[in-house]
Design a protein around this nucleic acid. Sequence first.
DNA 1: CGATATTGGTTGATTTTGTAACCAACAACG
DNA 2: CGTTGTTGGTTACAAAATCAACCAATATCG
Lengths: 151, 151
Amino acid sequence: MSHPSDFDLSRFTPYLLNLAAENTGKSFQRTYRDRYGMLRTEWRVLFHLGRYGPMRARDICDRAQVHKTKVSRAVAALSDKRFLTRTTRDDDRREAMLSLTKAGEAAFRDLIGAAWQFDQDLLAPFSPQERRILIACLTRLAGRSDDVDAI
Amino acid sequence: MSHPSDFDLSRFTPYLLNLAAENTGKSFQRTYRDRYGMLRTEWRVLFHLGRYGPMRARDICDRAQVHKTKVSRAVAALSDKRFLTRTTRDDDRREAMLSLTKAGEAAFRDLIGAAWQFDQDLLAPFSPQERRILIACLTRLAGRSDDVDAI
DNA sequence: CGATATTGGTTGATTTTGTAACCAACAACG
DNA sequence: CGTTGTTGGTTACAAAATCAACCAATATCG
């Protein structure tokens, strides 16, 4: 495609990304929604705490690139579900450390298994090379090429 | 990664897709929002009509995989902006053909140029092979592998 | 110290989306 | 024909995302 007039929506990258994200996201959504009544942000917060250990709400905002009001509400919902606890820090009483309860950890273990399986199935049709390139491109397009594994 | 316990969120495909979609989408959003006060669905409807010619709301739903209420509202908004007109068909008075006005076509030409440029910039860092694989994977993940260019 | 700015986090108001019910026009079938 | 079922499209109501204002704790700097 060398000229705007030939430009097709089905090759407009943001559109394709959105379609793919919605399609796969909605599909996996059923898992955490049906099993634990979670919203997506709740699942993300749970994942972060389960995978990387206790941290502040703000850390989750930074890592997951989610706005603090969304995180705040997700944390409140997870707290209502008794999946996490807030502990105000003594050295800075504004901050609260978030950590999963036993029930939260159990939910995390259950869901990470499902996520893993889901991802395996999703990538099954692609070759190792295709997967590598897809992940690399997406990581770059996600705008956090350098700090994907940073903490 | 061969075991769920090592499974990293930054390699969970739906998450990555979502991050990439949000990042690129928000970036391009500024263009149609600032220039024409459009929402994303409005931009999509405009694009479909501009690129493929007059069609019914239902056709846009099918093609763009958008729910009919969203399309209905986007059409109403675009109509308010005098970017399109509805013409009830004589042979089936339920259906309305949607077509762009002159102003709508002008907006389309402006935006498709911007979109094309945006996409060029977005894909600039990738090699031809990487682009090919990325587009192919995304198309498949979008769940419309067979009919991307149909119609 | 005390005034001001900044930060972590929450809450409320507005906007946008999602879900379901709905209406009018047409189709199918007795 | 008329009853029932579908289809294109809109509207009403509930759920959620966004944005701005807010509070309390801490940092900064005169």
